[in-house]
Write a protein that binds this DNA or RNA. Structure first.
Lengths: 229, 229
DNA sequence: CGGTGGATTGACGGTTGTCAACTTGCGTGG
DNA sequence: CCACGCAAGTTGACAACCGTCAATCCACCG
């Protein structure tokens, strides 16, 4: 059964605003879906048919030019809302970076439901505004920051989103992205990302015990990199 | 008097959703404000105090790094909504690119009003979603496109936003931005922008009768530049 | 133990940024 | 109305950073 009361993002997703009864109604038009790492949920340019909440796993939103250069537009974590409600087209692909679980709705049905539940729309508005803020910050990074600033900023962003807050000492990160994903997110090539990471390791700022884990040894130094120079 | 019924963006701004009565209530908490070209309405990092509708003129949203590199995050035209509702901080400055007129509200009062008027919130949500789409498209440009692609894309964007639709022959554009503004928007330097414009002129794609006007001579060629190569 | 795909490293070149000189356009004041 | 002055824009020479291409390395899989 799809029981929202036991949903792991119950307290954080936009559905938190709903009464038990409304939640039941919403549940009736939704369905759970599992995706494998690397699987694409929706394609750039397709009609906007599906929207939903990320329950588990990590997704990237990405767009590419006609000749195949790719740019990641955002990373979505559990409780984030994905897809394009109230509009006919989706301008980006949504791809699972890890095995993932989502709670999906047909867009038309979701739109109708949302219009009848202003509290839900309000939560969605707040989330959209926050995402717009984040996206604009990323524009500054893409437009004006150097390769080493970008990599430092990326690592700090991952700390903010993945690590336990306020831990003392070295911070252990298990990255949901490979090097190519990082490059696509930062608007760099995989080689440049690799070189910057090597540099940070040689400077003693981070350690990389294996390809997917990063240990932050000197957070202050990383923050100095990200803010300028 | 502030008479919304005669407002030049009455049919296009988010207020279009309001009844006569609600419009009167909103009008009572708002005030008109004039700004000169170059004047800053709100500053990056300040508390979010003011929100509003652009009535006349053009604004840029911009953010800068600690060492002074600047990136423009968006261009706002009449009927667009500016400022950050439902959140305490504004992460970007809002600067008038031309003499301008806005209809402003104290954020706290606007927030309260919006929460009581779901139709208004819905319009705001739609606008925010559209702006997020546009911003993400711009991320692709900043992350992955070359200088000449960026300039071509910029000119086409200006055609879309400023020119009469579907005119045959050469398209006349009166740019609201100077070269430095264009550079900040495209994540380039002023010199690179200048060189690309010179190149397009020498190729016969555009003409530049004076510093602020551009004539599109060969739109197809421009579109070819923007899409790739 | 060997294969495969991701990651790293190196050499090189191109695009764009930097610095500086010069030109052009525009407004002000004589 | 013209001339002057300044800001905006253009052009050139050069350097740096990052992308490209290619070889190699390494982790993880059977």
């Amino acid at each position: 059964m799809n029981d929202c009361s036991q949903c792991s993002v119950r307290e954080r997703a936009i559905c938190q605003s709903l009464s038990e009864e409304a939640l039941g109604d919403l549940n009736r038009i939704g369905r759970r879906q599992m995706l494998k790492r690397g699987q694409t949920m929706t394609w750039q340019g397709d009609e906007s048919v599906i929207v939903g909440n990320v329950i588990d796993g990590v997704f990237k939103l990405s767009a590419s030019t006609m000749d195949g250069r790719e740019q990641t537009l955002g990373i979505m974590f559990p409780s984030d809302f994905i897809g394009r409600p109230f509009g006919p087209k989706s301008n980006h692909s949504i791809v699972a970076l890890t095995d993932a679980k989502v709670c999906t709705f047909m867009r038309a049905a979701f739109d109708d439901f949302a219009r009848d539940h202003p509290d839900l729309e309000h939560k969605l508005l707040q989330r959209t505004l926050t995402e717009l803020d984040r996206t604009r910050q990323w524009m500054l990074l893409l437009g004006r920051r150097s390769a080493n600033e970008r990599v430092a900023a990326f690592l700090l962003e991952m700390v903010a989103r993945l690590a336990e807050p306020d831990t003392e000492g070295p911070i252990h990160l298990e990255l949901p992205l490979g090097r190519q994903d990082i490059a696509d997110l930062l608007g760099l090539t995989i080689e440049t990302v690799s070189r910057q990471i090597t540099q940070l390791r040689e400077d003693g700022v981070i350690d990389t015990p294996n390809r997917r884990t990063v240990v932050i040894l000197d957070r202050a130094a990383l923050e100095a990199c990200a803010d300028e120079a």
